[in-house]
Structure formats: structure tokens, C-alpha cells
């Protein structure tokens, strides 16, 4: 079982262990299959170029799922992910490094829950933030 992180151990400014993926065209087709989004801009290069982009595009919701994975993997099995939001500001392409990162921006206890607010984002190989966002998780207390 993955490690659990506890509310008491978290402080503002803490960084989440980042995850780097290099999405392949296969992974994009897996994504299309998993969510049923078969829009050809994500797998048909000729189609993509015809719409004016240089290559097939990584699905926005795939990046949302990567950010969700970043948060849920950090928060551990006893945590509850309450919200994951992001904006798709820049395109990402397959076979390029895509890194998801996060930082604790606040902690509070509310209605018996230990809430942690996070800033989350994805970066491309040039270090540009293509997908900025935020997240809210509830963490368990140290037993």
C-alpha cells in the first residue's frame, strides 16, 4: 500500500513529488479508448495539421487526470480528493516530457475535515506552464 501523509505533517509551501510523463501516441489512443473521446485531432496527424496545429494534441482531460494522479498519489490512500481544477492554456504534444507539479498553498480545519489547498500545474520541456490549476484534498489526522 502507498504511504499515507498526515495533515499534521503538511505545511504551506510544501512541494509534491513531481511526476514526469512522456505521453506516446499509444497513450493518447489509450486515453481515447478509456473516455470514448475519438476526436481525430488526438491521433490522426493529417487531420491535426489540417486544423492548423503542428502535430496531434495531448487531450486536455488527460492532463487533468495526470494532475489528479499527482494529487491522489501524494495524498495517500486515506485521503479524499475533493476538487481538481485546471485551465488548458497551452498545447502539449506526444513524445515530449510533460511534468506535473504541485505546492501546498494553505491548510485549514473545517466541519471536522482537515483540508489542504494546492496549486497544481503541468510544465512542458521548455518549463512553460501549460496547465495551471488548483486542488482541494482532505487528509487524515495522525493517529
Amino acid at each position: 500500500m502507498p504511504d499515507q501523509i498526515y495533515f499534521e505533517d503538511v505545511g504551506e509551501g510544501d512541494l509534491l513529488p513531481e511526476i514526469t510523463e512522456r505521453p506516446t501516441t499509444t497513450q493518447l489512443v489509450h486515453w481515447a479508448a478509456a473516455v470514448g473521446d475519438f476526436y481525430p485531432v488526438h491521433y490522426d496527424k493529417d487531420f491535426a495539421v489540417g486544423t492548423g496545429v503542428p502535430a496531434v494534441l495531448v487531450h486536455g482531460p488527460f492532463k487533468h487526470a495526470l494532475l489528479s494522479r499527482l494529487v491522489s498519489s501524494w495524498a495517500g490512500p486515506q485521503a479524499t480528493v475533493k476538487r481538481i481544477a485546471c485551465s488548458f492554456r497551452g498545447q502539449d504534444y506526444p513524445n515530449q516530457d510533460l511534468t506535473v507539479k504541485g505546492r501546498v498553498t494553505g491548510t485549514r480545519s473545517e466541519n471536522g475535515e482537515n483540508l489542504v489547498e494546492l496549486e497544481i500545474w503541468s510544465e512542458n520541456e521548455s518549463g512553460e506552464k501549460t496547465t495551471p490549476g488548483s486542488a482541494l484534498v482532505a487528509l487524515p489526522s495522525r493517529p
Binding site: 479508448a33 481525430p40 491521433y43 496527424k45 493529417d46
Partner: peptide, 24 residues
Amino acid sequence: DSLQLVQWAAGSGDFYQIHYDPAF
């Protein structure tokens, strides 16, 4: 078309790139 090939990949679980990645 390419869409049907990708839907076939989804339905069958055969994700070999030869069916959708021209460079490959």
C-alpha cells in the same frame, strides 16, 4: 478511416501503433 481503426483499438484492446501512428 483512422477513426474506425482507433475505435477498433479501443474495442479490442489492440493498441499497436502500426494502426494509427504514421511515423511508426
